[in-house]
Computed example of a mutant assay.
Amino acid sequence: MKAIAIAAAIPFVMLGGCATQGASGPSSLPPAPAARADLAAGDGAARGTATVTEAADGLHVRVSASGLTPGIHAVHVHTIGDCTAPAFTSAGGHWNPTGKQHGRDNPQGMHMGDMPNMTVAGDGAGLLEYVIPGGLLATGAMPLLDADGAAVVVHAGPDDNVSDPAGNAGGRVACGVLKVG
């Protein structure tokens, strides 16, 4: 009788071992490198969040904004991780490690930090999702998060997608420093 009970228990012990192995064993992938920024206005009021996640095809950027003026706003990744209010000029220019001209429609190329415009609804909320092709977060020859970091900036107006160096997008109305984790 004991032999039958032990034989019946063996499959359950084996299944338990398999379930544990699958959850933490060699088949588990590490999380993708990611950074996050809390966006704020010049007066410190919260204006949403931005996340940047590294993937095989580049950097996936997601900006979820709130409390903005309805309309079209330029959104760019800037070269310096510093959002000193109220003008946020401390964030520097657009991330441009390849030395291109500004603008998604510029025939001479575009900055890696140039992204499409974001439409903000009547309630002040906007969402932008974009992939920066070939971008790397913190590794490689031209990482976004180099020694002085990076920031996501929302501008007062739309980007014309051609004018160098900044697309005539107007002042900087929200900014957030990207931080890993």
Results as ranks from 00 to 15, higher is better:
Ala46Val: 06
His76Glu: 08
Ala85Ser: 15
Trp95Pro: 01
Val52Gly: 02
Ala41Cys: 06
Ala45Phe: 00
Thr53Gln: 12
Arg36Ser: 07
Ala37Trp: 02
Val52Trp: 01
Ala41Asp: 04
Cys83Trp: 00
Thr53Asn: 08
Gly92Cys: 11
Thr69Asp: 15
Gly93Arg: 12
Gly99Pro: 03
Ile72Trp: 09
Ala87Phe: 00
Pro86Val: 07
His60Trp: 05
Pro86Cys: 01
Asp57Thr: 13
Ala45Tyr: 00
Ala87His: 06
His73Cys: 04
Trp95Phe: 09
Phe88Cys: 05
Asn96Ile: 01
Thr79Asp: 13
Asp57Glu: 15
Ile80Glu: 11
Gly58Glu: 07
Asp43Met: 13
Gly48Gln: 09
Ala35Trp: 00
His73Gly: 05
Cys83Asp: 01
His73Trp: 03
Ala55His: 14
Thr69Cys: 07
His78Trp: 05
Ala91Ile: 07
Gly48Asp: 08
Ala87Ile: 00
His94Trp: 02
Thr53Lys: 10
Ala50Trp: 02
His60Gln: 14
Ala34Met: 08
Ala56Asn: 12
Pro97Arg: 08
Arg62Tyr: 00
Pro97Met: 08
Asp82Tyr: 01
Val61Gln: 03
Gly44Leu: 11
Leu39Trp: 02
Leu39Pro: 03
Gly93Val: 12
Ala40Arg: 15
Thr98Phe: 11
Thr89Asn: 14
His60Ile: 12
Ile80Thr: 15
Thr79Gln: 14
Ala85Lys: 09
Val75Asn: 01
Arg47Trp: 03
Arg36Asp: 02
Ala85Thr: 10
Gly93Pro: 11
Ile72Ser: 14
Thr69Gly: 08
Phe88Lys: 03
Val61Phe: 03
Val52Asn: 02
His73Ile: 00
Ala40Gln: 15
Asp57Ala: 15
